[in-house]
């Protein structure tokens, strides 16, 4: 089933995508599947196992179910401090 998602990008992913956010239509079911689709399309260098996902402002499991209208953020390895 197709769904429309808002995706936000930060740090290395924002630079590699060339955008901070976009709406996109996808049939992918989980954050990992969506990330793999985007990684192929935009040549992201980070593998899926090094990127966490947040859905609607909360950390989410990589196999969470994506729903129409969700806001998805992919979180590269953090480096605060």
């Amino acid at each position: 089933m197709t769904k429309t998602l808002a995706v936000q990008y930060f740090a290395i992913l924002r630079e590699q995508r060339g955008l901070s956010s976009e709406n996109l239509v996808t049939v992918t079911a989980t954050p990992t599947a969506l990330y793999e689709e985007l990684r192929t399309r935009h040549a992201f260098t980070l593998p899926a196992n090094r990127v966490r996902a947040a859905i609607n402002g909360e950390f989410a499991p990589s196999d969470a179910e994506l729903r129409d209208g969700d806001t998805v953020v992919f979180i590269p390895p953090v480096a605060g401090g």
């Binding site: 740090a11 953090v78 605060g80």
Partner: peptide, 14 residues
């Protein structure tokens, strides 16, 4: 707090 912040909080450094 500082150890956990560095490990968990979504902040990135270039």
């Amino acid at each position: 707090i500082i150890d956990e912040v560095k490990a968990r909080v979504p902040v990135w450094k270039k």
